[in-house]
Structure formats: C-alpha cells, structure tokens
Amino acid sequence: MNATHTPPASSAKYAWAGGLRAFAAVMLSLAGLLGIFRGIMAIAEDEVFVTTPDYVFKFDLTGWGWIHLCLGIVALLVSFGLFQAAAWARYTGIGIAALVIIANFLSLPYYPWWSVIMIVMSGIVIWALCVAPADDADVSGRPTGGRQL
C-alpha cells in the first residue's frame, strides 16, 4: 500500500480560489485604508493636492475628501466580509472597486500619481473577485458556507 497521499486535483483548485479571494480582501482593505487617509487629507485641505482651475469635473477639495473617505470606509468594511467568504461581499467588492476607479479617474488632476495607483489597485481587486471560481473554498478544500457566485 502506498504511504504517500496525493490530494485530489479539486483541493488545489479550492486552495487557489481561497487564496485569490484573500488577495482581493487584502488589496481592497489597503485601498480602503488609503482612501480614508486621502479623504482626511483632502478634508483638512492639505497642501499635497494640486489645484486645477479648468477641470470639467471640478469639485471642492473638501467634497472630494468626503467622497474618498466614504468609499474608503465602505471598501474596508466589505474587505472584512471578503475575509469571511461572504457572497454579498464578493458582489459588493466588485461594485466598490468600480466606484473607487471612477472617483480616482475624476480626481486625476488633484493627485495624479496616486489616482493612477488606486485605479490599478482597484482593477486588480475586480480581476481577483471575478476570476475566482464560483465554488470558493478555504485552503483545506472544504466548501465555504453560504451561497457563492
């Protein structure tokens, strides 16, 4: 009898899916924290931001601060749901990451390099949440609870 045990191919798939979900949760929590910090800086009218008087989507810097602060808080909360493998968090995570992309696109003139970084980071979150198979599972290969995508 063979003493070595080879795990079934499906457990490798489950481990990969769980790892991708955890990656998305970490990236979304980082995007949320950074959005919160950016929002606080803008509300305090820090001198880090560039002023562009002739921008089509012109908002007051404080207005942008509140938008980024609220999106950051929601993104951070949704990332906690992703860590728990909640199906609602997967759908909401995709939506919040899309809103973060839109908000950062619209605020490109105020903080260009940071906006591009946040757009890329949120795009990676969307990719990770969309690519993981529907039957997510934890690393041990056991299916997670709840309804999955």
Rank of each mutant, 00 (worst) to 15 (best):
T51S: 11
V50H: 15
A85Q: 06
L61Y: 07
D60M: 09
V74E: 07
V125Q: 04
F105H: 10
A85R: 10
F59Y: 08
I126C: 05
I126Y: 05
T51F: 11
V50W: 14
V56W: 12
S115N: 09
V56N: 02
S115D: 07
F49M: 10
V50R: 15
F59L: 13
T52S: 11
M118D: 12
W88H: 05
N104G: 05
L77C: 01
A75Q: 06
P53I: 05
D54C: 01
V74C: 05
A98L: 10
L108T: 01
V125Y: 03
T52P: 03
C70L: 15
V125W: 00
Y91S: 12
I124A: 06
Y110M: 12
I119L: 14
V50C: 13
I124H: 00
V56M: 06
G65E: 12
V116Y: 09
G63L: 02
V125F: 03
W127D: 00
G72Q: 04
A86N: 00
V56G: 03
T62A: 10
L76F: 14
W88G: 06
V100D: 03
A85L: 08
F59G: 00
T51K: 13
K58V: 14
V48M: 14
I117W: 09
I73K: 11
G95L: 14
V74N: 04
K58F: 09
D60H: 14
F105E: 01
L76T: 12
V78S: 01
A128G: 10
P53Q: 12
N104T: 04
A89R: 08
A97P: 03
D60I: 08
E47D: 13
V78R: 01
G123H: 07
W127Q: 01
G123A: 09
S79L: 08
W64N: 08
G123Y: 04
H68P: 04
A97N: 03
G93K: 12
W64C: 02
A86M: 06
V100E: 03
F49R: 03
F105A: 15
M121D: 03
W64F: 13
L76Y: 09
Y110I: 13
F49E: 13
D54I: 02
A103W: 04
K58Y: 09
L99S: 06
P112S: 05
A85H: 13
A85V: 02
S115I: 00
G81D: 10
C70R: 04
F57S: 14
F105R: 11
G123P: 06
I67P: 05
L76S: 10
N104V: 02
V48P: 00
Q84M: 15
I96Y: 02
G95Q: 08
V120D: 00
L69H: 07
S115A: 15
D46Q: 08
L99Q: 03
I96A: 00
A97G: 04
N104Y: 06
A97Y: 01
I102P: 11
L99N: 02
F49A: 10
I119T: 09
V74L: 12
V56Q: 09
H68W: 10
G93L: 10
A86S: 00
V125H: 02
Y111A: 13
F49D: 13
S79W: 03
M118H: 11
N104H: 15
I119H: 07
